[in-house]
């Protein structure tokens, strides 16, 4: 043991170059899966070979929203629910950046739900990583749009009566290019998925199912974080061909994981460029057309050579 501590002082954690060590230890509870998600994200970036100087991470508010503050990358900690609009602007202003939105389910789907579906519809070239812990963790366990039917929370003491969102189904139906779902237990597959998304064009959505031992498990007799992770292990199945709209997350059904959608669609910026190009071409043709028509129409009266003169003439007459 003494030998171990002696070696410790010489070597530091390999992730310390990407973490803001002055902010450590982080505020996440013991048994929370967010740290695992951050590790998977950093490993995924390393695997993807993306330049760290060209990577920006945008977070909203919440437990997951603090990820941006803990990573030594260009990071934005934005207002509640508005991580995707900030990221869209960032990507369109500086298109060399790899923009990653790392936020929670309450931030991305409750207050920012419209931003997410519209970013997916436009196919903005950003990666969205949503950590789903089924509840509003930081504010004390209120009902979230992802709380399963029948689950208990601070604001649902008799069980939740509302149907939850199926996050992957919503993202896929809105038109995302890449949709995947993993739990924090699938560390390596999640890493691969993040690496794939980092090098992929278009709107990439990855849902990470994470344990919340302090709030969700306590209200629902889920035990510790380790117990929740074991439960995920028994419930999770991997099916890449599953239809994402048919796999909601309930209290006791199987958690279908996998990469469900991997398409290539034109991104928002490509569509903008194509639109402008088409418009310019049309405009060039239009000028030609105009000059041709001018020649034809002014054949009778050759006194006026330019269109400006003709307009003056018209005004005068």
């Amino acid at each position: 043991m003494a030998n171990n501590t002696a070696q410790l002082q010489e070597k530091s954690h390999p992730m310390e170059d990407l973490l803001r060590m002055d902010r450590m230890p982080h505020i996440w509870c013991s048994g929370c899966g967010l740290g695992s998600a951050v590790t998977a994200f950093v490993e995924g970036l390393k695997k993807a070979g993306v330049s760290y100087d060209k990577t920006a991470i945008v977070s909203g508010i919440g437990c997951t929203g603090r990820v941006a503050g803990y990573l030594r990358l260009d990071s934005y900690h934005t207002t509640h629910g508005r991580a995707i609009p900030f990221a869209t602007g960032l990507k369109l202003a500086n298109r060399d950046l790899t923009v990653v939105v790392f936020s929670g389910d309450g931030d991305l789907f409750a207050i920012g739900g419209n931003h997410l579906i519209h970013a997916a519809r436009r196919n903005v070239d950003i990666n969205v990583i949503c950590v789903n812990n089924f509840i509003y963790g930081m504010t004390g366990g209120q009902n979230a749009p992802t709380t399963p039917l029948g689950a208990y929370s601070s604001t649902a003491p008799f069980g939740n009566y509302e149907m939850p969102f199926n996050l992957v189904g919503l993202a896929a139906a809105s038109g995302a290019s890449y949709v995947a779902r993993w739990t924090t237990m699938h560390a390596r597959r999640l890493t691969d998925s993040i690496a794939t998304a980092a090098n992929k064009k278009g709107f990439c959505f990855i849902e990470i199912v994470s344990p919340c031992p302090t709030v969700f498990a306590r209200k629902n007799k889920g035990g510790t974080g380790l117990d929740m992770l074991k439960e995920f292990q028994t419930r999770a199945i991997i099916d890449h061909d599953a239809d994402p709209t048919t796999i909601p997350l309930n209290m006791d059904n199987e958690i279908v994981c996998g990469e469900f959608v991997n398409d290539d669609r034109p991104t928002f910026w490509e569509n903008v460029q194509a639109g402008i190009k088409a418009r310019l071409e049309k405009f060039a043709n239009w000028e030609e057309m105009q000059s041709n028509s001018r020649k034809i129409s002014h054949k009778k009266d050759r006194k006026y050579t330019s269109s400006r003169d003709s307009s003056i003439m018209r005004r005068n007459t």
Partner: peptide, 15 residues
């Protein structure tokens, strides 16, 4: 390296 991957507190690493 699974312990390093799954640790939520960046407290364990393997070389």
């Amino acid at each position: 390296g699974l312990c390093e991957m799954i640790c939520p507190d960046f407290a364990i690493f393997v070389i």
